[in-house]
Design a protein around this nucleic acid. Sequence first.
RNA 1: AGGGGUGUCGCCAAGCGGUAAGGCACCAGACUUUGACUCUGGCAUUUCGUAGGUUCAAAUCCUGCCACCCCUGCCA
Length: 547
Amino acid sequence: MEEIKTSNFIEEIINKDLASGKVKKVYTRFPPEPNGYLHIGHAKSLCLNFGIKQKYDGKCNLRFDDTNPVKEDEEYVESIKEDIKWLGFKWDKLLFASDYFDLMFDYAVKLIKKGKAYVCDMSAEEISKNRGTLTEAGKESPYRNRSVEENLDLFMRMKNGEFKDGEKVLRAKIDMASPNMNMRDPVIYRIVHASHHNTGDKWCVYPMYDLAHPLEDAIEGITHSICTLEFEDHRPLYDWVVRECECECQPQQIEFARLNITDTVMSKRFLKRLVDEKTVEGWDDPRMPTICGIRRRGYPASAVKDFCERIGVAKANSEVEFAYLESIVREHLNRDADRVMAVTNPIKVIITNYTGSEVLQIENNPNKEEKTYRNVSFSAELYIDGSDFMVSPPPKYHRLYKGASVRLKGAYIITCNDVVFDKDGNVKELLCTYVPESKSGNDTSGLKVKGVVQWVDANNHTKVTLRRFKPLLGLNNGETDYINRVDKNSMRQETALAEKALDNAQIEDKFQFMRIGYFVKDKLSTKDNAVFNEIVGLKDSFNKTNC
RNA sequence: AGGGGUGUCGCCAAGCGGUAAGGCACCAGACUUUGACUCUGGCAUUUCGUAGGUUCAAAUCCUGCCACCCCUGCCA
């Protein structure tokens, strides 16, 4: 096996496993729970898992981790598939954890037979109370030493629907005194009388993540199960499951730090709230950090992937500056996007010495080797952008003012001779003359001008409504981290506090003109990628007007 | 002494005992038919959280300390 240069610690582990012969073919998986839309944070995991597949000529499954019927929905599985496709990844197998419910049940029975699991009758509160604290050991359940026969009988009856939700659970018998809370006889199967999006009403008992996930990995032959840092404490339990269940495949869990971006809320719960309360138009609102949101914003998939690669993979908690993402998006747009001219705040230009009209050919992208051109109509009446003309220009202003000359991009050099004002004193139109010999491409005028401005033909242009977005969501005080954290705590005791914090969190709705904008057409069909390619361009280069 | 992690430039991040890569941001110039882009130069040398130790040599090994993150769901 030839050495492959590693670019992060995970690949280093893989290289060692390959070299030692522990692993022959690398197999990873991306395991989202279908309970929300994918966001840029998921893209990092996606790129990691699918990136490894590509780099090592391995395999990667898309597996929906749908072990909790009350939280999951079919709507989300479709959106997730679509987002992954948009990013350009191809999964080897498309699976549902729920496809393994029979197998998982059998494994649970196996654990019972080995004396490694028992049915516990305590309530959720009782279990919680007996779990102990971070510094004190927990108490063993009075049901901990039931016989194998009794456990088997009870577990079957749980499955057969003889008990209500919460009445009984199956617990792993490990160690109530473990300093690792996850090892204090964790619940591995619970009763939930709810219809499942995939298995319908077949089951009323469902496996917990800690039992299900390692089994899913083992069943599929996953060699490296990559997850985020908060699961580090679960690794001993993960290993316990694959060991005690005596799986042929013994996958290993590797943890990495999740992606955080400055001023960007990644909390699914918060994002869902914005959608539910109609603060945004939907999951694909261009202000959202969701994959479909940033797609609609005009980010190329290639840039998103490039970003994920360049930020690296490590175990240190970090927060990447939004500017980094932006710069990479700009880099890709600059390299790949076809340019168009746009005027967002039109001022009419009359070229007094020009008659008739013509069609000019303007290069689409000066950075591309293969030259392509677009046809642009030119006539004596044009619009230029409001920011390209000033009545009283500051020093070093290179664009138009009375007496000044600029080049109309891809066309001629013009000189502003006069400014016509309306009755309110606003600039109505500019009277200019053009230099016939200065035509772009074969300029024989010998003139040099500092400024180049974009323009559109006043009588022949495309109107589109452009909206400027401040990209991701920023909270007024920038306390996204706090919100993300409170959001999590709110699942526990601090619900009221968290709700209040969320109420107080205001969405910054400041529209910001960016170097390279991400403009979105109103009422754009979110499914239509082609439209994006048309409207995405460089600064000042948008396909015309909202006059 | 609960347990598990992490600490290298403003932000990411290489480095794996031999004398601090790279990117983003920033600063200064040049160039330019998008004031974009591109290009050039600058940007951790009493320095790698900190205090000691081992060594000819330490960000890299050892010890103590400090800071931050995660763990007491029948969520994932």
